[in-house]
Design a binder for these strands. Structure first.
Lengths: 225, 225
DNA sequence: ATTAATATTTAGACTGGTCTAAATATTAAT
DNA sequence: ATTAATATTTAGACCAGTCTAAATATTAAT
């Protein structure tokens, strides 16, 4: 009677976290493999194996052994609910309680699992049923729909074209603070004024000032023309 | 090697809940005995025994076997923090998100364990460092001080004396809704117009209307002259 | 086609918290 | 002072979730 066979009943916070991680990885077109998931979850691979087995028994994921995992519709539904909670909470903390966008992630990380549907609804209503959180991350609707992202990033926006920052795909506190200092936050109007070859830095103009931005970082900033 | 001997490390939400329950019972001048605590925690007495042993090893309670438990200073500190969280959250949900006083208890019951000190501080600031929650329950300050309650209740307020409701010691949803319907909420100005003998009903005047109130219930409504 | 490196899974132990069933202690009632 | 009723504690099992160490499978490299 190994551990894995006993696991698996309720949708606990831990289960929600696994589903969320799987969802986000699948969405980033990754193959969801044991080690990767283990890294994300800060857990050893063997723990992932056990949990995945449990999730499969609950009908929340399908598991091709030695290949990868993917969410079933019910798994995805739960993941989207949790993500909705997370992003609503982030936005609420910023809008209603004066948090900055670099402070809200950890807080939302625990709150997302414990707010009731009623509280979720009140928060959403208070915010006017918003579509994106402070990072521009799309907030799933109640029925699991997601606004689509713009196709351009600062790394491929044509030169001299005006655009607007829609989303910043990063949750590193220091980097977010840096970007906020530059004015590179969702809503900002920007323009690429220079771009070095071989994936070199991108020079971006925000308002009157220009700054050189690492290519890797530029790719994380989603732009709408 | 019995279970109890292995228990006991971190201050988990469950530990916080036990400490809170013990605190509230001690405060109500009860002897904190195993069965009573078990009832409060919705748990079997044997579980309480195990947990109490663990709490004692953590230095959070002192345990006189077969007699009772009481909190050490560090146990009390934790209990007060959790209660502060709970009551701040209750008040916040009412003030900022339009909850009614009968809806907030369950929500606060889980949130109390997961809000950070930073979020606690913002909530407190946003509310203007309040002293009582929507039920009039006193909110411990950061250093663990508690405002004192009035000594009178509706059950012993002298006839024809004007008073103000300070606190309603009840968390039963339906009863709270009933009391709110009568206008018997913290802040309300009241007066006892009649009182039947042998712990019979108390007739209370709120505004223009009078209502008969069960003696047991009247004792839970704390009044300041 | 072997071998080596890497990824995945199994086996089995541990912790926190609960439970049931049985043992023991205390209190109340005769 | 026994007995009966009740409260408390112990013994031992279980579940969720993790871990380490070992076994097995897959992929890459020669």
């Amino acid at each position: 009677m190994t551990t894995a066979e006993n696991l698996a009943q309720a949708v606990t916070p831990v289960v929600e976290d696994y589903l969320k991680a799987i969802y986000l990885m699948e969405r980033a077109h990754m193959q969801v493999k044991t080690v990767l998931l283990a890294e994300r979850m800060n857990v050893k691979p063997s723990s992932v194996t056990a949990m995945v087995k449990a999730l499969a028994e609950m009908g929340l994921v399908e598991h091709e052994p030695y290949y990868g995992v993917h969410l079933t519709p019910s798994g995805e539904r739960i993941a989207l609910e949790v993500i909705r909670h997370h992003r609503l909470i982030e936005l609420y903390l910023v809008e209603a309680l004066g948090f900055t966008w670099d402070e809200v992630h950890e807080e939302a990380e625990v709150l997302e699992h414990v707010i009731s549907e009623k509280l979720e609804a009140r928060i959403a209503a208070h915010l006017g049923n918003p579509v994106r959180d402070p990072h521009g991350d799309p907030i799933p609707t109640l029925d699991g729909a997601l606004p689509t992202d713009p196709t351009h990033t600062l790394a491929d926006l044509p030169l001299k074209t005006r655009g607007r920052v829609v989303r910043v795909c990063d949750q590193h506190t220091e980097r977010l603070r840096y970007l906020a200092g530059l004015g590179l936050v969702p809503g900002a109007r920007v323009q690429v004024v220079a771009r070095e070859p071989f994936d070199g830095p991108v020079t971006v103009q925000i308002g009157k000032e220009s700054h050189a931005l690492d290519h890797q970082l530029a790719r994380k900033i989603l732009i709408e023309k």
